[in-house]
Nucleic acid binder design. Structure first.
Lengths: 342, 342
DNA sequence: CTGAAAGCGCTTACAG
DNA sequence: CTGAAAGCGCTTACAG
């Protein structure tokens, strides 16, 4: 058995300092009504005894945990490998730390789902707020949290046309619009867009931006073709081949993730097409891959770390002011590279 | 303000079920001494009232948090981008979930250090065990945890020749030995090894394995040159150029991380060398990059997810049996690819 | 400026 | 098989 060290409590400090536990407690929480002399004396004893307040007892008494629960992407396997995740995590930790909040990585058991985890976190009082990293259009969890008036925020856009409080996202329509416009300005006229699943809000937004740019530039909608796939290399390769075989002489491909764009470039090169000379390619997320592959790929940086940091701040405001925050937008940046002649 | 929902407590359930709070508590914890009839009745009331035990109160009473504190790599910025991290995290979460433990991502404020975070976690009783993801040779934190007899484990090898309890690692010497032997069997005779900093145990181990393989195959030690650098592409490029300029006709390079190996390959190709025809290259970590770059790179898979999962189990055994576990070894696998003619 | 007391919501020996 | 009581280590109105 682990040796039971005798925990030093507030009572021990009180006894040694010759004051009451209440006073010690007030010193801990910097209550200004305690005299300077008493404060110093108590602090001295705390130090001498090596006292540290027990967070759990404090949480119980205060009815708050100073902890934010993190709901990770559904399929951690894949999602964790996307650099978006660690970058967002970094922002989350940074913001939480600044406010002295901890992050609880709660565990969704296999066979279970997010919603269950969310309810569990709320009902057991383990956390003061919940940060959801998925961004499906449908979301029982956010509905539930809203009903319970429990502080939360979502990275991405959880629902369409319903309500847009408590989430943090890029302006995906605008980003897609800018990227497409940039390609049109480069002279491209037949563009393909490869997206993720249509159940993702981000997909819908990027399609809108893509179409809008075509329209504004007088490009026939039929020359803007949309392919729906997954966030992996295979999707890129598959559609690249389709694009070649279509015989429609595309001159640009926009992919919704760099790994997809990478697959597109690879397949083109295998088939003897040159990027960017024969066809331009651009992606999203500005990942390591987009920077380091043979033909560096133009890509939209979405600033995942800021998304994470802002999401935490939304929760904190929700906790402290009880406000359901409006949607917060994080800026994006297009990094222009060789795959589009830059 | 957030609406204060009246929390349903054990007392409410007790009242409705016509029993004492003690009995309800026993039902919650599946105490077998409670009669079947009482149990059913209590469960029914719990359900009817929507009761969920308060984890914080429970933790205080039990003097345990059922939470494991995770100490992330020092410089989260860089480290989080290494795929090792998310993969290990996945294993950690999986193992913790299975045992119904939560993970606390504790925040090391900037300007502070790991050790401080560790002490804070221990002294505030926020966690029952600590998992350290860094693996320096020197480590105040592990010393401290050992002295306090506080359950912990480390991924990697924290110290040399001192004590080897409570950590989980690959057999880095063996892995390096195997990889080197494989290259020697391919006919290579002048090998370069590019490592990370010498303060890392993994560096020392891989150097040992490298040298041992050379020795066993009667290759002159002078033909096995060691370069010390960082875990990035630049290191690879820099030493690749040195290798070319040395005029020593190297025929293989082993890099301690795929991103370094990638830099090596890039620089060689820029200089007109062919990989693998002119020189072979191999790396460690079997990252996406090693699989997806133009010349796929032979790499050692270290199974980061298993390292994470095992690290959690070591902590759990430490918590429950009080045993300082011996070192646990996780297997590795060499993936042979084009960069070494496979 | 400080203390006595009640309370946060559980658990668990002890007694029956 | 079940209950009354004490306790986990804090916080915080209330009173002075």
């Amino acid at each position: 058995m682990v040796k039971k060290r005798q925990r030093i409590t507030i009572k021990d400090v009180a006894r040694e300092a010759g004051v009451s536990p209440s006073t010690v407690s007030r010193v801990i929480s910097n209550n200004p009504r305690i005299s300077r002399k008493t404060t110093e004396n108590v602090l001295k004893q705390m130090k001498r005894l090596g006292y540290h307040p027990n967070a759990i007892a404090r949480n119980l008494a205060r009815n708050s945990s100073r902890t934010i629960g993190l709901i990770m992407p559904d399929r951690p396997g894949e999602a964790l490998l996307n650099p978006f995740f660690p970058e967002a995590l970094r922002g989350i930790i940074k913001s939480a730390t600044k406010a002295s909040y901890d992050i609880l990585l709660s565990s969704t058991p296999p066979g279970s789902d997010d919603f269950r985890t969310v309810r569990e976190l709320v009902s057991t009082a383990k956390v003061d707020g919940i940060l959801i990293m998925t961004s499906k259009i449908e979301n029982k969890s956010t509905q539930y949290l809203r009903e319970m008036e429990f502080p939360f925020s979502v990275i991405g856009s959880p629902y369409k046309d319903v309500d847009d409080s408590n989430h943090v996202d890029n302006d995906n329509m605008q980003a897609s619009h800018e990227l497409t416009t940039y390609l049109l300005e480069k002279g491209c006229r037949r563009l393909a867009l490869i997206t993720g699943g249509r159940f993702l809000t981000v997909t819908e937004e990027r399609i809108k931006g893509f179409k809008k740019a075509l329209e504004e530039n007088g490009v026939d909608q039929d020359d803007g073709v949309i392919f729906v796939g997954d966030f992996n290399e295979e999707t890129g390769k598959k559609y690249a081949r389709e694009i070649i075989q279509s015989g429609k002489e595309f001159d640009a491909v926009v992919a919704t993730d760099d790994v997809v764009a990478y697959g597109v470039v690879s397949a083109f090169m295998e088939e003897g097409l040159r990027v960017p000379e024969d066809i331009m390619v651009a992606g999203f997320n500005n990942s390591l891959l987009s920077r380091q592959c043979t033909v560096p790929i133009t890509s939209v940086e979405i600033h995942a770390d800021l998304l994470g940091a802002q999401a935490v701040e939304v929760i904190l405001e929700n906790i402290h002011k009880g406000e359901q925050q409006k949607k917060r937008i994080v800026t994006h940046t297009i990094y222009k590279r060789k795959s589009t002649f830059d």
